[in-house]
Nucleic acid binder design. Structure first.
Lengths: 145, 145
DNA sequence: ATGACTGCAAAGCCTTTGCACGCAA
DNA sequence: TTGCGTGCAAAGGCTTTGCAGTCAT
């Protein structure tokens, strides 16, 4: 993941927000910038920590996350029990999935072409208009084994 | 999914609970029975509806679900936003995944052998001790398209 | 000037915990 | 008899909503 990729997402996101009729508010822009600094899933509360000093309210963070998700710019995941986390959706389609250690909570990203192929084949076969998909593997990581 | 399969799970679950040192309480048994009647994910609140007339408290349902999950008898999923749902883990290993319609919320189960193979290959390659995995496809179902 | 955007505080909702009573072993 | 199991009610924790002031357009 390069800096160029992150900026590409941020520009893409800001453009799409504008196209959707949203104004360029300070809080929302701060959320987009914060998200562009993360390469894996972040929770709303983690973003709140990062943005508190910039005087961004928690409610604005949740509102921005919801809008970004609606526009297909963010993927919402359940990281730990009952906590949502968010991850950029790259305009190019590149993405990864997660292996989560049940013991230490570590989240290990991975990608696999044949897994992607299998998923696409399934959605085609079901005549389901798939927009997103997520794969989560749970178990014990090598450090905890 | 046959009645025999459901009963197999219930017996398997009750046996494993006993082996883990749990007593055969009425509420827990009621939860196991209720779960054995569902072939796809159910939420705790749905179970609560079903078990209210049997005078089972909501807290007992949540407690039973957590114990069953710990023992590897149940898989916890996030169905709708912020709501957990639970699904039996069959002793035989057979299982399905879900396509969820973002518009109507319908949950369509599916299974695919090559998808399973790809997932196993990935976890082997990562030296991650995978106990469970879940695949969720999100988009628009054929009825809503 | 108009109405979207924002922060703060309050409310919501699912889930967990505390506690005293009841029941399994 | 012992202490796990249970129901009820209260507390928790993340997320959403209401509202009045502020800012983008």
């Amino acid at each position: 993941m390069t800096t160029a990729t992150r900026n590409r997402w941020a520009e893409h996101a800001l453009g799409k927000l504008q196209a959707a009729g949203y104004r360029r508010g300070g809080a929302r822009t701060a959320v987009v910038e914060a998200l562009s600094r993360h390469d894996c899933a972040v929770t709303a509360l983690e973003l709140d920590d990062e943005l508190r000093r910039r005087k961004v309210g928690r409610a604005s963070i949740y509102r921005a996350l919801e809008q970004l998700e609606q526009l297909g710019l963010l993927r919402r995941l359940e990281a730990s029990r009952g906590v949502a986390s968010y991850e950029r959706i790259e305009p190019g389609g590149e993405h990864h999935h997660h292996a989560i250690c049940s013991q230490c909570g570590r989240m290990i990203p991975f990608e696999d072409a044949s897994l992607e192929r299998a998923i696409h084949a399934v959605s085609d076969r079901m005549s389901f208009d798939a927009a997103e998909h997520e794969v989560t593997i749970r178990g014990r990581c090598d450090r905890c084994a």
